[in-house]
């Protein structure tokens, strides 16, 4: 009986290691290509394509990205600021909403869930939203506009609601209530502690969304020193695309400023770098048994 179980476990584990290893390789391979290309001379990329090891090694891609280092550093700063502030604020609102919406004694929880979910189905399109942001809220060229629209998404709220529901048994809330704790205290003292894996996940997603965002900068920011990193980089890549699409008849010519393939790749690396370090930090919370102990203690 026991032996049989171990046999199964062994089989399961060998499957697990094989599959995960294969998946990892599939994910890593293109990334290595990008890294390699970022260190390749541009002419060599245009002529010979990508290789796992650069054919002609060169740092020109990075040199071009960093030609105005203060721009990149500035953009990094803006991105870090918006990411941190946005993620923290967003987490606060989302956990509160998720907590309220999963409370069985909150009678309108379904109505409000629908109120929130409905916004993923219907939207007024870009123009009215743009008018709202620029004309009524007057958010052009502000840090607020980089943070506000990304604070919450219906998906993350509902996800949070589910995480909390499965992590916090109703009985705990009930007994806390009997002990005289008010609703906010329950949220603050118990719910937050118990749903760390969920909070870590949602926080990671929020941070990723802020980190990867270029659209808000593109629409609402005119001041170059307020560009977010992704937009700063994305814009350089777009300039290439733009030039490819402009026929000779337009007479548009941007001279020596055209960024190159190796620059594109260098940018992809630069933009990825720091956030990759965030993930291992989040991983800490994906360990079983951590949560219950935290509350009991």
């Amino acid at each position: 009986m026991k032996i049989k179980d171990e046999k199964y476990t062994g089989l399961f584990h060998s499957i697990a290691y094989t599959v995960i290893l294969l998946a990892t390789i599939a994910c890593l391979f293109p990334f290595i290509l990008v890294i390699s290309a970022s260190f390749t001379q541009n002419d060599s990329i245009v002529k010979d394509g990508f290789h796992l090891i650069p054919k002609v090694f060169s740092l020109e891609g990075y040199r071009l990205v960093f030609r105005f280092p203060e721009h990149i550093l500035n953009a990094y700063g803006v991105t870090v600021l918006t990411t941190v502030v946005g993620t923290l604020l967003g987490l606060l609102f989302i956990t509160m909403a998720g907590y309220v919406l999963q409370r069985k004694d909150f009678q309108y929880r379904n109505a409000f869930s629908f109120f929130i979910y409905f916004t993923t189905l219907f939207g007024g399109g870009l123009v009215p939203w743009y008018i709202m942001m620029t004309k009524y809220l007057n958010l052009m060229d502000t840090y607020t506009v980089l943070i506000f629209p990304g604070l919450m998404t219906p998906f993350l709220i509902i996800l949070m609601k589910n995480f909390i529901r499965s992590a916090v048994p109703d009985e705990i809330i009930e007994s806390a209530k009997i002990d005289g704790a008010n609703d906010f205290k329950i949220y603050y003292r118990i719910v937050l502690q118990l749903s760390m894996p969920g909070i870590a996940t949602v926080g990671l997603f929020l941070a990723l969304a802020y980190w990867n965002d270029w659209f808000l900068s593109s629409l609402f920011i005119n001041k170059q020193d307020m560009y977010q990193l992704q937009f700063y980089l994305y814009n350089v890549i777009n300039t290439i695309q733009f030039i490819t699409q402009m026929g000779a008849g337009t007479g548009v010519s941007l001279g020596g400023d055209i960024p190159t393939e190796s620059t594109k790749m260098a940018m992809a690396i630069i933009a990825t770098g720091p956030i990759v370090f965030l993930y291992p930090f989040v991983q800490r919370y994906f360990v079983k048994g951590l949560t219950i102990g935290a509350v009991k203690g």
Partner: peptide, 12 residues
């Protein structure tokens, strides 16, 4: 997706 000019300047 290259520009028209890049392949010329690189000799491709």
């Amino acid at each position: 997706k290259d520009t028209l000019q890049d392949p010329i300047t690189s000799g491709k």
